[in-house]
Simulated assay, not measured.
Amino acid sequence: MTMRVAADASETKSAKSAPADVPPVVDCHAHIFQEDMPLSSNAWTRTNYSFTAADYLSLLDQYGIHFGVISGLSISGFYNDYMISELRKHKRLRGTAIVSPATDRYSLERMRDDGIIGIRLQLARMTELPDFRSEEFNLLFRRVRDLDWHVHVAIEGPLLPPVLKALEESGVKVVIDHFGHPDPALGVNCPGYRAILKAAERGNTWVKLSGGFRLLGTAAWRTNPDGDADKIADDLAKHLVANVGVERLLWGSDCPFVGYEGRITFDYALDRFRRWVPDPQDRWRISQTALKLYFG
């Protein structure tokens, strides 16, 4: 049954406590795109279909989810145009944009007015990382701080510690994608994952419970490697709930599951959230965290 959509975030936040079990209030990770959008030079795949804002909102309505956060589409690089045009129309949506480090304050302010609430550093599959202490990134991160945005990071876990350290030094809020993508052989012992735990303790870092099916590696969508992604995600989720706490966790569907179309469904994503966080009150608290971070 589809739940009534709240008029705005404040209406949803006014609830004092959750019913015994409700859908998530916010889906914190999804993508929208058109089939003919330009591709970046380092795109890891291409889509042969469109997944529009209307498609996504219809899906949210079907499952009784009020709000959605659109992640900048890595394969289209700095082309945020379609996402921004849809954010202007649909106040139930927010987004994170992939931007050049030279983006000026005025452009960022316009993005903010259109519904952008952070920037995305899409670093997965990169052979060489930028210098995040360079002058241009120092300026970008200061502008992110001044706008009270966050930096949304996608990177393989073994490469995360120096990036996270540089971000923390800049003073920005940080949201880590997909459990932090730890090395599947190391799990909770991956250095990047351990760095996330310490950063979360310091109070300016959040972690997304999303994309568990991606945890066998960034090439797993095409290589079918050995391993059990569900088991890795289950172990990480249990550890995060116990050691980070639900106030630092977010949930995202990752729909439409780019690279995994036909194998992953929205039902699967919701089922995994219930499995990762079995207590309905904890899931409700995760929703409140998302409302405050993205719609507060």
Rank of each mutant, 00 (worst) to 15 (best):
P101G: 07
E168P: 08
V26M: 01
L249H: 04
V99H: 10
L293C: 04
R145Y: 09
T52P: 11
H31Y: 04
A6S: 13
P24A: 06
P24T: 03
G118N: 07
S210T: 08
C28A: 15
G259I: 06
I75F: 13
A124I: 13
H150I: 00
L57K: 00
I98F: 11
H152M: 13
L129E: 00
A199Y: 07
L73S: 10
R125K: 13
D55M: 12
R133V: 09
G77S: 10
E136K: 13
M37N: 06
D61K: 14
T47Y: 12
C255G: 09
F213A: 05
P158N: 02
L250A: 04
I116A: 15
P19W: 10
L209A: 03
N243D: 08
G72C: 05
A269T: 10
D36S: 15
G157S: 11
A237F: 09
P158V: 08
Y260G: 11
D113W: 03
V69N: 00
A195F: 07
R275F: 11
E169P: 05
V25I: 14
I232K: 04
M37Y: 10
I65C: 05
N138L: 13
E11L: 01
R274N: 09
L108K: 05
L93G: 02
L87Y: 03
S253Y: 06
F33M: 06
P278E: 03
L186E: 04
T45G: 09
A43F: 10
R274E: 09
L250Y: 02
A102Y: 13
T223G: 08
L164W: 06
Y82W: 02
F179V: 03
T289K: 06
K165R: 14
D113C: 05
I70Q: 01
A43K: 10
V172F: 00
Q281S: 15
D279Q: 11
V5L: 00
A154G: 13
A219N: 13
L167D: 02
H29D: 02
S134W: 04
R133H: 13
V175L: 09
H239F: 07
A15S: 11
T2H: 12
Y82T: 01
L123G: 09
H29I: 02
P191F: 08
A166R: 11
D104G: 11
G95T: 00
D230T: 08
F137M: 06
A18S: 15
H90I: 02
L87T: 01
G95F: 06
R194K: 15
L93Q: 00
L186I: 00
E109T: 01
D282W: 08
R105D: 14
W284R: 02
S170T: 00
M1G: 13
T45V: 04
P161N: 00
I116L: 13
D21M: 15
N204W: 07
T205R: 07
K91P: 02
L121I: 05
Y193G: 05
P161V: 03
E201L: 14
G68K: 00
Y49M: 12
L293W: 01
S76K: 05
Q62T: 14
